[in-house]
Design a protein around this nucleic acid. Structure first.
Length: 128
DNA sequence: AACGTGACCCTAG
DNA sequence: ACTAGGGCCACGT
């Protein structure tokens, strides 16, 4: 008995797919509203995982294009906490994000959502 | 397997 | 008030 016992609790407590969960929440964002990476991350229980949210959205966009999913993720409604369209460069065209937002009635000036705080859609408060 | 990168956010000095 | 640094999550090489 060299090793008396070594039961490694190799059991991931929560194996929920993070980026898929992100897609779910982002899809719930109604048109004309915007949310933030931090809010979504916080709602998912990982307020420090904001970066992963952006990564998930990037994957979502690629998925939507590659797999042509029926329910594409409206990534254009997700911005940073400052209301800036930080991810505009990752869209097909640099202005696609702004165009889509304006098409929904969201005014964008200088790559920043106007009255972003009023249009802010917090899943933790809307969905609760 | 380890390092580095990225559509971020928060805390400290 | 501003600047600097660290931290967490996931993925690619």
């Amino acid at each position: 008995m060299k090793t008396p016992t070594a039961p490694p609790p190799a059991t991931p407590p929560a194996e929920r797919n993070f980026f898929q969960d992100v897609h779910e929440v982002v899809r719930l964002i109604p048109p004309g509203r915007v949310s933030t990476y931090g809010a979504i991350a916080h709602y998912l229980g990982a307020r420090q995982g904001s970066r992963a949210v952006g990564y998930a959205l990037n994957a979502a966009n690629i998925d939507a294009v590659t797999l042509r999913r029926e329910a594409p993720v409206p990534a254009h409604r997700v911005i940073n906490r400052l209301g800036q369209l930080t991810g505009r460069h990752h869209f097909p065209t640099p202005t696609a994000m702004q165009e889509r937002l304006e098409a929904e009635g969201v005014r964008v000036e200088d790559d920043t959502v106007v009255e972003f705080e009023k249009l802010f859609w917090d899943p933790a408060k809307e969905l609760e």
